[in-house]
Design a protein around this nucleic acid. Structure first.
Lengths: 145, 145
DNA sequence: CGATATAGACAGATAACCTGTCTATATGTC
DNA sequence: GACATATAGACAGGTTATCTGTCTATATCG
């Protein structure tokens, strides 16, 4: 009734992908806020996802996340202010600085993984573990090259 | 090597959902630009997706899209400037205006549907139609309540 | 050593949202 | 019909997450 256009055209795959993605995002970042990290936002995952144990260069992080150095610098700056990261000069290159997680940052990373797993478990509870595994397999296949 | 963290934790479902979603988005809106609609951006789909044939009220569009009236007004304003929409007073309510697609707006809608179908067909070509149908079925199931 | 490339800082812009407030118009109640 | 309340949307202003362009300091290569 309200969505005459959509149902006539049926829902696009993009729309169908976005719904659970955004739902998971709300659940995960809501959970993070509830666990005492209210200033961690979805965009920050670009940092957490790629940062190496021994620290990473801004430029490398930006490249891995597929964004500009400036954008990454903005995200890193916010996280550093919140005490999730520290930066130190790179001893092997005077131009560079290494960005490293603090203990607090590592706790966020752990929480992020745990909350994602919980959200995924809720999906398994809804559609069954087999369907979830199928979904995962297809998405992994799509992610490949 | 670079993604030690991620592979250790394996890729989150959220991450796996986002990749094809963003890819489709790039393909669809890139295609739209190539077809002569370079000023249509992903956010505008919130308007196209919900607008009724006879015109819709701003407030209704905002509600259907899950955003504020102000945000919807911003999107509608841009589309009206581009000649994709017109607004007219609602004859049944002096406070309201009806937002309607122009012929140009309808061409965008058609292109949006066609380009989404093409993107989906490319996925079918990669993973096979059966896998795509499975993906769609699971996502539809997740979208339900 | 000098030319060129790279790391990241600084300045400024834009898109896509948000909250809060205000006016005009409707609507339901007495 | 008057008045209280609700609704439609405009106006002002803020934030987040990106971008481009430019600049300096440091490296590296020939």
């Amino acid at each position: 009734m309200s969505d005459r256009n959509i149902t006539a055209a049926r829902r696009t795959l993009g729309f169908l992908l976005r719904q659970p993605y955004e739902r998971m995002q709300r659940e995960v970042y809501g959970g993070l806020a509830a666990r005492g990290f209210p200033d961690i936002r979805p965009a920050h995952s670009a940092v957490f996802r790629h940062i190496a144990a021994g620290g990473s260069r801004l430029t490398v992080l930006a490249e891995q996340a597929g964004m500009t150095k400036q954008s990454m610098a903005y995200l890193v700056e916010g996280l550093a202010e919140g005490g999730y990261l520290v930066t130190a000069p790179d001893p092997t290159d005077g131009r560079a600085r290494l960005v490293k997680l603090t203990a607090r940052g590592r706790r966020v990373w752990d929480a992020l993984i745990a909350l994602s797993a919980e959200a995924e478990a809720r999906i398994a509870a809804r559609v069954g573990p087999a369907r979830l595994a199928e979904l995962r397999a297809i998405l992994e296949e799509l992610a490949e090259p």
